[in-house]
Design a protein around this nucleic acid. Structure first.
Lengths: 123, 123, 123, 123
DNA sequence: GTGGTCTAGACCACG
DNA sequence: GTGGTCTAGACCACT
């Protein structure tokens, strides 16, 4: 099973992309506290990146209390990073502001929003 | 006059930030074809970055036909990068999709959109 | 192994000479798609130029789809620059026209051509 | 009357292009010893380059004994630079060798030579 | 003054 | 080890 993909051309470091994807899966509930994340070697192989890169991502996630290392077994999910969603919302605000300054109309943004979220009246 | 600011903490390279800001100003009409952009040395001083960094940014903009170098005089605006807005719209779509997967509701996104664009009924 | 030499007295910038030599090797088949070119640091050392100069040359070759960067591994050959040979033929035409205007006779040019190409009847 | 054109995009400095064109005209006999070359200001205007650039070219030509400055009148042709044709022939040899290494066939080179020189059997 | 190139040396991300 | 970016400072060509 491949969990997600990495954009090798992005300016965002690969280890950070991995951190973000893992955090997203925790927040969205795809993986829950106590669950094991894939082993460093397996994820590295699945993503086609170096083992050290995954190891570094996991290390950072341990530092942020998202993962918990279990000696000899692997890493389990510990909790979620509370600041993550806020960061992402800030990113959204930034890019919208940016698009406004380059002349994007509100309707154009709304159109894309509808495309992504569909007509969920529950939204 | 300071044209814009650089985020030194960003993962986006400084030279690329400069490219993006210049393109934005061209697209938004703040600078028009034929106008001179600030000299490499002046912009470097204003932004607090190295001359070479600005030079590299301008060089890339020349490659993309956004700027036109005039020896001994400076750089003038040549045209706009047609792909730029499309790229930005793709970025918006990506982050919205991303936010959706981590559980953001449509209304939350709409709220931010309203905050940024206000109630422009013309939008 | 030294791949080629740089003419430090030439008006052609060093980075451009490097681009040209690499393109020549690709077109002549000395290096083939998939092959690794020497690392930035190694080539810089071999040629006696600065690392940044080689890096710039390789960057331009990436822009022209001649090289492909692989992070942490090096650069591989991607393809050839179709316009390169045409440019070179134009250069030939220019210098011949030039020599004609300063009074060079056809036979003189033919003589040099023979010296370079020998009597390859296959030519 | 415009004497010749300057390639602003070339890596060859403008002042050197001017020197070369003047030398060509002397060698080809278009201007003869004793003739006046255009004034610095006029040539600068005709070529669309800076006065200083033409002044520098003329200065170099005086150094090489091609031009003779006449106080208050201008510059006259003094003689020709004997090494010039040899240089140009070397350039031809270089580019031919280069084209051979990248796989150009003798016939391709011959074809261009014919195009430039025509069928001058006198050549 | 302008841009264009180059050097020496540094730090980061990645394998 | 690899490439990617950046700095500080230099020299050249040109207006």
């Amino acid at each position: 099973m491949v969990w997600f993909y990495i954009d090798q051309t992005s300016h965002v470091p690969v280890y950070k992309q991995i951190c973000d994807r893992i955090k997203e899966m925790v927040i969205s509930g795809k993986i829950k506290p106590g669950d094991f994340v894939p082993s460093v070697r397996k994820l590295a192989k699945d993503l086609g990146v170096n083992v050290n890169t995954v190891a570094r991502a996991y290390r950072e996630l341990v530092n942020e209390d998202v993962l918990q290392p279990i000696k000899g077994e692997g890493y389990t999910v510990k909790g979620i990073d509370e600041g993550f969603v806020k960061e992402k919302l800030e990113d959204l605000r930034k890019i919208l502001t940016n698009l406004k300054t380059i002349g994007l109309k509100k309707d154009d943004a709304l159109k894309i929003l509808e495309e992504v979220f569909g007509d969920d009246s529950e939204g």
